[in-house]
Design a protein around this nucleic acid. Structure first.
Length: 450
RNA sequence: GGCCCUAUCGUCUAAUGGUUAGGACGGCACCCUUUCAAGGUGUAAACCCGGGUUCGACUCCCGGUAGGGUCACCA
């Protein structure tokens, strides 16, 4: 028995940046196909020229590539297919078979609230010969399909379904027509889409039926919710994948986090690369309820993946996040010190900025005996012939003991004087990197000029 | 509001009629430690409510409640 190869697609609209939820949909679709050696396609659903954003399409390609989600063949672009007349022909055939009609009503004003919903369009019986083409929805028909993600049947009575525009008067199809025509022509076997599409599924089912073509399996995945409630949206915070990248989140972390937002394996595993995810993917692991986007775990993943990076890789990754002159040898000495302290790459500046430029310590950060502490430290350091970690450790500790200082207090004052902060990488190591001259300079400043 | 979907710790989730309801993030405590981290150990923390079905329900059915979605010549 020859098993039908699985063919899925991701079909974003180039209306802005790639949404975190879009990435997740792409990931699940990709994994569904690739898990069994199937095909994954990309389609650009750009049938609304008014909402299209220049460059958005390329941006989407770029980000998918960055995440190593690769697609088979070249992307299908709907606006290009409009010229071939496929959509128009499909719409015309529905007119001919009596399942669609022309309508020349003015577009409804969405902003006008309280406009009663019109299920049955007045134009359906007017026999017009131009205008937009609408689906002629039958009365009292049960429409049912099996949702392969929710693993259940969902049904509607067609009397609840509105006559819906399929072909706009500008000749462009709406999503409802284009999705049916294209998924069919692309040979898509499984459609994974957000649950927000569930209520328009009966429209698509009707169109499939009237066009005489078989519908693919359709499955609706949960939508990601904002911690404050409602769908994750631009207004409420970060939703663009690109934005997370700019903030210093690693693709590995984003992908791992997103994979687990609504999917889990049976064995409770949490760490996944793309390949491991594809390998482990099982449609049964998809969650039906909507997850809340809680950044805590993303932060943890990010720190984890940063720690897993080699120093060399980090050197490369950190480059865009360093505003000072990028000194490779200096950087490679700093990186081991900050590596396990970074949650995001963008934390680097705050944590290690004092290596590049002196940060004046706020006087209130110092302890009671700071002058004493710094004096002794300065004495030890300036006498040090060989300024290295061992000699520094040894000399400073001896001073602590001889003067009966409290170790923590002593080093805290040193820390503040050198880095201008109570939170720093290991301070002796840091001073070695800064060098004797700079260290002495900073100690003197704290001692005499504050 | 009509229609549709969903419901396990704070969050992401495991469990597919019989478990001390498991894991992860976060929290807390302790260890390590010259700060902060990282690491280690431990700990608190959940089956939305009400009816059924069943010898037995987190698991199945019904109702309620709550959350979400959708009702454009947008996708």
């Amino acid at each position: 028995m020859k098993k039908k190869i699985i063919r899925t697609r991701f079909a974003p609209s180039p209306t802005g940046y790639l949404h975190i939820g879009g990435l997740r949909t792409a990931l699940y679709s990709y994994a569904l196909a690739k898990h069994s050696g199937g095909k994954f396609y990309l389609r650009i659903d750009d049938t609304d020229k008014k909402r299209e954003v220049a460059g958005a399409r390329e941006k989407i390609f770029e980000i998918l590539k960055l995440f190593r989600i690769s697609w088979d063949e070249k992307p299908v672009v709907q606006s290009e297919r409009v010229k071939t007349g496929v959509y128009e022909r499909a719409a015309m055939s529905l007119i001919r078979s009596g399942h669609a009609f022309y309508c020349n009503c003015p577009p409804r004003n969405v902003k006008e609230s309280g406009v009663p919903k019109v299920l049955r369009d007045p134009c359906r019986n007017k026999n017009l010969s131009s205008g937009a083409i609408k689906l002629m929805v039958p009365e009292g028909k049960e429409i049912e399909f099996y949702d392969f993600v929710m693993d259940r049947k969902v049904s509607w009575n067609s009397s609840e379904v509105a006559d819906t525009i399929l072909l706009k008067s500008d000749g462009f199809p709406t999503y409802h027509l284009a999705v049916v025509v294209d998924d069919h022509e692309m040979g898509i076997t499984h459609v994974i889409r957000g649950v927000e599409w569930l209520s328009s599924t009966p429209i698509h089912l009707l169109v499939y039926d009237y066009l005489g073509i078989e519908a693919p399996l359709i499955g609706h995945i949960s939508s990601i919710l904002d911690p404050s409630g409602g769908k994750l949206s631009k207004r409420k915070g970060n939703v663009a994948v690109e934005q997370f990248l700019e903030e210093g989140y690693l693709p590995e972390a984003i992908i791992n986090f997103v994979i687990l937002l609504g999917w889990s394996p049976k064995d409770n595993r949490e760490l996944f690369t793309l390949e491991e995810f594809v390998e482990a993917f099982d449609i049964k692991g998809l969650q039906k309820s909507n997850p809340i986007f809680n950044k805590d775990k993303l932060d943890w993943f990010n720190g984890y993946y940063i720690r897993k990076k080699s120093d060399g890789e980090l050197l490369h990754l950190l480059k865009p996040f360093v505003t000072n002159v990028f000194d490779e040898s200096l950087m490679s000495r700093i990186i081991p010190l900050v590596k396990e302290r970074l949650t995001k790459l963008s934390d680097f500046e705050n944590l290690a900025g004092f290596f590049f430029a002196f940060r004046k310590p706020a006087p209130n950060l110092f302890g009671k005996n700071y002058k004493l502490h710094l004096q002794e430290a300065l004495k030890v350091i300036s006498q040090l012939e060989d300024f290295n970690l061992d000699s520094l450790n040894e000399g400073l500790m001896r001073a602590v003991k001889m003067n009966n200082f409290k170790t923590g207090d002593f080093f805290m004052d040193l820390r503040v004087a050198i880095a201008g902060s109570k939170i720093t990488p290991p301070i002796n190591e840091s001073m070695v990197i800064l060098g004797k001259e700079e260290t002495v300079k900073r100690l003197k400043y704290a001692l005499y000029e504050i």
